[in-house]
Design a binder for these strands. Structure first.
Lengths: 334, 334
DNA sequence: CTCCGCGCGACAAACGTTTTAACACGATGT
DNA sequence: ACATCGTGTTAAAACGTTTGTCGCGCGGAG
């Protein structure tokens, strides 16, 4: 039958509703005996607090939103795992929003977050427009950028240095003797793609080469399928580069499949390096060299910053944290 | 400046709050001119409905919960994609809960769902105890089982025939001339593991062999890491089976890595087949034979059933839908 | 013996929406 | 001219919590 409310619990325990609420939210304020009686009543009646009522009255929820670009990408799954662990340690629930790289879907997810009155939002923005985020902040919703450097110092952000990562990747290719290098990337709006390219160009320059040599193959998505299409595109032309740097491992795995199917040998004909070092990178046909990032940590730390901002708004100091990536060499590069 | 409420909108548009609510929920009930005025006010003030207040008063939310066993497994990511697409087409938001195979976490996620007063729950249960689900139903929360057959006809369920799939896999191994066959599986509590084994045994019996021959290697998780550990376990013994059937592709990929590292050739020394046909199965060192399931469809259809049950509780007829799997032969099997 | 302070609970007023019943007002039919 | 009806809108009562204020009773200080 109908839902059991705080009133029913109060009646059963012989106290007032307010006291039940206190037991729930500030147990230390209520005397031991009373508390025990209330807790017993809660258990017997199977009471579960009405989150909406609580949110409505209290003005805020115990919920945070997480908006990612592609939940199908193991990189984001790992981040999400870190977020979820930290959030549930602190008693928060996570609403996940997947933008699939579509600005419209991202927008809609943020709307859902706003409607649910989440306490804060973790977001890996799919483009550089800060407007949406400002609108959230106007609504008293804390925002922490994930895998994206801060746009200003008045906000928290957690990122990994993508320029360094890009330089590591291409530096490694150059040390392997690569001549012409191709950069397989995703939508131009995605900052990670830009930064990794900048790093690649720096590595070229550092080796005394012209950064403009870098041949860019841009795809509309950063999935394995897109990677395979990039391979087809590349093969349709005459001259294959000596080495390919892919902006993430999914692209690289798709590229690898595409190349192998066409009889191109990796790394003998073409060196190939990815980015993210997802689990599957080491399991692929030719195991994939890649750039490793502290993914799970990224999620955990971002969540910690967000919850600190929520729970201690006065003492909170905004932080911009930048992790460093690592080069992982496997079979796909000379 | 606090949040803008329906009252502010009403004042601005010169109507009563009730009318604004009508514009929001039953636009056809309000006259064209008024509606336009209200909509303008909403836009100008940047009003966004307070979901909690709405849920509180209406008695139910526009939210469903999705509880999966391992969001790190691409199988579930695909299911989740189907769920999310269908849900957002129908105006529902999805709260994702990942149980990581832990009963306690599953329990906690269901509690969060209950607190949020989700309209319904999609769940791939991590064990066979129906008690939790009954408790949800008592609270008027619809439940649809995903990738799990119904326990009774008074509920909806969407599944893929795992017995058939298991039989397909082992039948294929037998046709390849396999002698001793090993079954690498996960926790005994997971039904999929049991059913796939039953199918495997049926295939053995059908080939005139003793089902008891099937050598079972059970692991505590169904991840790539567990698969690699299974390989180590197997290699520590004397006699390797001729063929291995892994209960999912992650186990199979881990097993593959473990075997290759030890110098075992696949499929020459050992045939290997997985289950789920995740994207990465075709990209692995030796591309993986597997059993394909209509994953995305599974999510979509399950959500459709759930929302039908929520939106048309009277006319809703419970359905149990069973899809059929497909055999995908690649390089890892003879 | 009185008074103050304090710990513990009760009371009641919100929070922002939905929804029901009632109402105003023209149009329609007799 | 009157009753009837339909359309569009309003007023007000919920929904289940949280929280600030207040009151009670008890122990210790004066």
């Amino acid at each position: 039958m109908a839902t059991v409310s705080i009133k029913d619990v109060a009646a059963r325990a012989g106290v007032s509703p307010g006291t039940v609420s206190n037991v729930l939210n500030r147990p230390e304020k209520v005397a031991g005996g009373t508390r025990a009686r209330v807790e017993a009543a809660i258990r017997e009646l199977g009471f579960v607090r009405h989150g909406s009522a609580s949110t409505l009255r209290a003005g805020h929820s115990r919920t945070i939103g997480l908006s990612v670009i592609d939940i199908g990408n193991p990189f984001f799954t790992d981040v999400a795992a870190g977020v979820e662990d930290m959030a549930s340690e602190r008693g928060y629930a996570v609403i996940l929003g997947n933008s699939s790289g579509s600005r419209m879907k991202e927008e809609r997810n943020l709307l859902v977050f706003a409607e649910q009155r989440v306490r804060g939002v973790l977001i890996t923005p799919s483009d550089e427009d800060p407007g949406r985020l400002d609108r959230l902040r106007e609504r008293d919703i804390a925002v922490v950028l994930v895998d994206h450097p801060a746009e200003r110092s008045s906000q928290c952000a957690v990122a990994v240095n993508d320029v360094t990562g890009g330089a590591m990747a291409v530096g490694h290719l150059l040390r392997g003797g690569a001549g012409r290098i191709g950069y397989v990337t995703g939508p131009a709006a995605i900052r990670q793609c830009q930064d990794r390219r900048r790093g690649a160009e720096q590595a070229l320059a550092a080796a005394g080469r012209d950064p403009a040599e870098l041949r860019e193959i841009a795809m509309p998505a950063m999935t394995a399928k897109a990677g395979q299409q990039a391979a087809e595109k590349l093969l349709a032309e005459d001259a294959l580069p000596d080495a390919l740097f892919c902006a993430n491992d999914l692209l690289a795995l798709g590229m690898l499949r595409g190349l192998l199917q066409a009889g191109v040998r990796v790394p003998d004909d073409v060196s190939l390096i990815g980015y993210d070092d997802i689990d599957f990178a080491s399991a692929s046909t030719v195991s994939l060299s890649s750039i490793r990032q502290p993914t799970y940590q990224l999620g955990r730390v971002a969540t910690e910053l967000l919850l600190d901002e929520c729970d201690n708004p006065d003492t909170h100091a905004h932080q911009q944290i930048m992790f460093q990536p690592d080069l992982v060499v496997r079979e796909s590069t000379r």
